[in-house]
Amino acid sequence: MDAGGGSTSVRGNRGAGRLARFWARRGNRTAVVGALLLLPVVAAFILVIAGPLARGVILGFYRVQQITMNTRFVGLGNFERVLGGTQFWNALWITLQYTVGGLVLQMVLGVGVALLLNQHFHGRALARSLAIFPYLLPIVVATTVWKWLLNPNYGIFNTMLTDVGLISQPIGWFSEPDLALGSVILVSTWRVFPFVVIAILGRLQNIPRQLYDAAATDGASAWSQFWDITLPQLRSVLIITVFLRFIWDFNDFNTIALLTGGGPAEATLTLPVLIYQLGFGQHQLGLAAAVADLTLILLSVLFVLYFWMTKPLGDQR
């Protein structure tokens, strides 16, 4: 081979040669162009999402002056105060009750209604649209209507219960400390279970009918068919639905703020409401940011664990 001449000429500009060879390969060229095209999106992401997020996270390490908005670095001081007091832990416990309680109800109700709506019956289309209705209602309207229905003075619910004789005097569903959280959970469930219905129903309609025929000839009862076919087929959509609903309910501010504002006496004071009260009620932005940071960490850890345990990508279609 003509090794001598070739090697001297290459040695002269080895770097350029390598670059030329790199550029000559189509795959590499595509990758470079692709990266360049992605740049604006990455920049926008940093500006719009990562920036504010980081700002919020960092705020937890500062003390913020009420009027001047001057900040002073306090290290872990805010976190020490939050974790040392009872308010955070109380709010966390209420948040978990609100989230898990609501989640269980939503899932049971959602799956149940989805199964019903998947049956063949007259007026199914109408029933399907009606079931979605609560989810379409603006949250302000929904909460106002429920506050009105459950009002101790003129609410139709109390009137009905007293008329039937189940209770002797009207109940303050949102004002009794023992009842408020439960009432809030019920209203929230009523409002959002259609989301679960839609998600589950969409998947149910895609389960091949022949699987049920095969299971029936294999001797599976309707009950067995539900456990052995329907549930495993719903697995991935259930995992995603639980994930989304958990996050949304854990971070839900609107429902509680509109129904009870966290009261009575902190009985429904969840973390998002607490953050709001600290930040905008008591003007302690640093403390509020610390609680928010803790919430973020908690949710992240929870969901790393969750996805590690459930492996949603291993869906068996």
């Binding site: 091949p208 699987l211 025929d213 095969a214 299971a215 000839t217 001797g219 495993p232 068996q316």
Partner: peptide, 29 residues
Amino acid sequence: SVQRRNVAMVFQNYALYPHMRVSENLEYG
């Protein structure tokens, strides 16, 4: 009922249980 007749059927698209292993598919009946 289907469950109580001693018949078996092979469907055109097989209708194997997608989330079960082959052995589980075989033994389900």
